[in-house]
């Protein structure tokens, strides 16, 4: 497993969480910068120019969404949200405001590291994208627009392909329902979520070996979908 490298800004007002993140991430050779408030976070972001930001939404001095917006105004740095379980709306709002992904408290170290790797990779992809996705026998070639499972070519409808393309482009990252709808139905953003669910089901029927227990195209309850990172 390749260890990631880079500078990560950790923003949380709980010292215990900051300590946990610091020790875990430092052990994986990340450089850590810490902030305990939104104000400090913004100035740190300017000064230290981190490669990724881990941001707790419940900061004492400012609304988390506002922090995301302010960062996004000046930088495209990947932002990971730390949020609680029952706050699906908050997660969606943060993702729509420009956050890249989220981790639900309490979280395990593996999950945290996987998210950070995805975020950092995503940053690299923005600079020079990788048009080929390979995972568990599924191969998606975005240049040639060919999808194969265990070497057999799959026939996807245009909408199915549009959805898969988005998922592949952001593999490992959560995509909100809205994001996917916008990608597949650009003309009709407010359309019934039922269409999306139907297409996801159809897509699963084609790319998953056991569609009733999916392993690649995962549901993020209340938020959206995530394609397993390659």
């Amino acid at each position: 497993m390749t260890l990631g490298t880079g500078r990560i800004l950790v923003v949380d007002d709980e010292p215990a969480i900051r300590r946990l993140l610091r020790t875990t991430l430092q052990a994986h050779d990340y450089e850590i910068v810490e902030a305990n408030s939104a104000a400090t976070a913004l100035s740190m972001q300017r000064e230290s120019n981190p490669d990724a930001i881990i941001l707790d939404l419940g900061l004492p001095d400012r609304d988390g969404l506002q922090v995301i917006a302010e960062i996004r105004a000046v930088s495209a740095v990947p932002i990971l949200i730390l949020s609680s379980r029952d706050d699906e709306r908050g997660k969606v709002a943060a993702l729509d405001a420009g956050a890249d992904d989220y981790i639900t408290k309490p979280f395990g170290a593996e999950e945290l590291l996987a998210r950070i790797r995805t975020a950092l990779r995503h940053r690299l992809q923005q600079q020079g994208s990788r048009p080929l996705y390979e995972c568990d026998g599924l191969v998606v070639d975005l240049v040639r627009r060919i999808v194969t499972l265990d070497g057999l070519e799959l026939r996807l409808s245009p909408k199915e392909y549009a959805l898969l393309e988005q998922l592949v482009l952001h593999a490992g990252k959560v995509l909100t329902h809205k994001h996917l709808q916008k990608a597949a139905w650009p003309a009709d953003a407010d359309m019934d979520i039922q269409y999306l669910r139907i297409y996801i089901r159809q897509l699963r029927g084609k790319i998953e070996r056991t569609p009733e227990q999916p392993t690649l195209l995962m549901t993020e309850p209340g938020v959206g979908y995530r394609l397993k990172g390659a």
Partner: peptide
């Protein structure tokens, strides 16, 4: 309440 796919629901719960 929103349209939900039962396959999706069960899959997610099993996951």
């Amino acid at each position: 309440l929103e349209a939900c796919d039962l396959h999706d629901l069960v899959g997610s719960a099993l996951n």
